[in-house]
């Protein structure tokens, strides 16, 4: 296994649309191992996309299961040729990216998604995701479209009333 170089914005390779994975062979599995080692070698990323290391294929890794604050999750996921087939709701959250060091910003993502993807064996799987895991998947899938979270930034100063009314009322009772 090897730690691969993370491409940094504005590397044009991060703007390319990824190609589908067609061969689920030993070479792919070696690449998955390298990609995971690269993710783990960095500053605590919950996901990584193949294009971030210059491999412009439809493959991402997402794992929020080891976060300090637990969120609903499906464990360690290798998602190949992923496709979001349903979206529901939206919320603002703070994101950063291995390819954009030393900057974080607010991004609107769907609260719930239904995701279809193949695993490293090529088997099709379907996941219902919510919250932080759904956000992580949407962040990584943007890389497959040649997009960064910078392309979706919203103002840090405009979300005063963006939260759900029932949440705000509950908090105000403090």
């Amino acid at each position: 296994m090897a730690v691969l170089e993370i491409l940094k914005h504005p590397d044009v390779r991060l703007q390319q649309v990824a190609e589908p994975v067609e061969r689920f062979d030993a070479a792919l599995h070696r690449f998955i191992d390298d990609l995971e080692q690269t993710r783990l070698a960095g500053p605590g990323a919950v996901g990584i996309a193949a294009p971030q290391v210059g491999e412009v294929i439809q493959l991402v890794i997402v794992d929020i299961s080891t976060m300090k604050k637990p969120h609903p999750n499906h464990g360690h996921l290798v998602l190949i040729n992923p496709e979001i087939i349903k979206w529901k709701g939206h919320e603002v959250g703070r994101e950063g990216c291995l390819s954009v060091p030393d900057f974080t910003g607010n991004v609107i993502r769907a609260q719930q998604i239904v995701l279809q993807a193949q695993n490293p064996q090529g088997e099709v799987q379907r996941f219902e995701m919510q919250g932080f895991e759904a956000r992580a998947v949407q962040h990584e899938l943007d890389h497959l479209e040649g997009m960064l979270f910078l392309d979706r930034l919203v103002s840090r100063r405009s979300d005063l009333f963006a939260r759900k009314v029932f949440q705000k009322k509950a908090k105000n009772r403090g």
């Binding site: 919950v46 994101e95 992580a136 705000k168 403090g174």
Partner: peptide, 21 residues
């Protein structure tokens, strides 16, 4: 904040969890 502020002041405190991907 609740202990210190008047009842008519509304506020919320939210954790910011930054996703790194």
């Amino acid at each position: 904040l609740r202990a210190a502020l008047d009842e008519d002041v509304q506020f919320s405190v939210d954790e910011i969890e930054t996703l790194l991907g």
